[in-house]
Write a protein that binds this DNA or RNA. Structure first.
Lengths: 201, 201
DNA sequence: GATCATACGTACCGATCGGTAACATAGTCA
DNA sequence: TGACTATGTTACCGATCGGTACGTATGATC
């Protein structure tokens, strides 16, 4: 019979226990689908199969759990956003359009709920909310990233093109939940191509 | 001394009394600034200087009050949106750009809160909510209106151009609250012009 | 001045909100 | 085995949620 080794390797500084991870995943799903304000902590712990004290030992408050959810969301976003780099190395335009194509598809599915980060900013107008801070920091990062991609494309005015593409992105997030399957998000790719074409020197 | 005539003219079927109107106005301001879910009915009636029963005598529920708020919001929107018609009769492009210019200005002010209708859809993902229904109906109307304006402009593909402009609009609503004064909304006019130019035959 | 409808306020409802104190249990290492 | 730590559980807190039963003030009409 083999020796039972500990589940967490020796130099693991921050291995989250089971309950905290279940809470995290459940909160992520519920917060995204229903909205943060709409979901109570009671429902989170019930659906996660744990109880409230388990939540509050791992997260300081519901607001902090929401912020954590958005940090996870951001990680997942970058993974999708950067997926095109492998397929199109050195081609910023193709990388960006790969993300746009995927987004246009997702945003025209029934039940699409937009960007969790943008939604959080809508739900929490006050600047002091931790979730809002995560979201705003992320969006600034995204904007800077778009600018550098537009520079790589050789845009006449990278900032203006990046702004335009960001407006299209955010517009797609919103329109995806406003309109159903035949929403304006279906034109995202065509419009983005037009805009990029018109912006190159 | 003149005969004191009744305040409401004879064939007035539904003249709202004073308290209901105060509630309406207070709700409109608070719902827009703070969000619908964030504001309780208690706070509305307190700030309006009335009491809860007064609210529930004029509105069936908080949800219905929220829907009423959005109906008012929609009226105000069309007033602004159609303001350009007087200045630029028969010139759909100039009418639209007039709205875009005003929006770009508002969306780059500190404390901008985006579109109340879009925000409501973010706050209430469930299709059955009365506020959401108002918002979605409005957005469909807006989309149709944009299509007809793009036809009037002589666009190659009016639907695609209208979609693109709608994405820019919604993106501006969102970006206005995400970024501060130097947000991407500042480029809205330039981008829209580029997109329209590229879409005419 | 009595009547009566309308409009408004006082006081309260049960439910749920986010959050916690106190205790029980399980795994780790001496 | 025994002490320590980490995690889970029961039961509860005050505050606030949306909503209402019921009594009161007001103002026009006869």
């Amino acid at each position: 019979m083999p020796i039972k080794r500990p589940e967490t390797p020796v130099p693991s500084d921050d291995a989250k226990p089971k309950a905290a991870e279940r809470i995290r995943r459940t909160a992520r799903e519920l917060f995204y689908r229903e909205g943060i304000r709409a979901i109570g902590v009671e429902e989170i712990v019930t659906r996660a199969g744990v109880t409230k004290p388990s939540l509050y030992r791992s997260y300081a408050s519901k607001d902090e759990l929401a912020a954590e959810y958005l940090r996870d969301y951001e990680l997942a976003f970058w993974k999708v956003f950067e997926a095109g780099e492998a397929d199109h190395p050195g081609d910023a335009r193709a990388q960006l359009m790969a993300y746009f194509e995927g987004l246009a598809h997702r945003a025209t599915q029934a039940g699409y709920r937009g960007c969790g980060l943008t939604n959080a900013v809508v739900e929490y107008p006050g600047d002091e909310h931790p979730a809002r801070k995560v979201a705003q920091t992320h969006k600034r990062k995204l904007r800077a990233r778009l600018v550098s991609m537009c520079e790589a494309m050789g845009a006449r005015s990278p900032e203006v093109l990046a702004d335009g593409l960001l407006l299209l992105l955010e517009g797609t997030y919103a329109s995806g939940q406003l309109f159903g399957r035949q929403g304006p998000a279906r034109s995202l790719v065509a419009v983005a191509e037009q805009l990029i074409d018109a912006s190159l020197r």
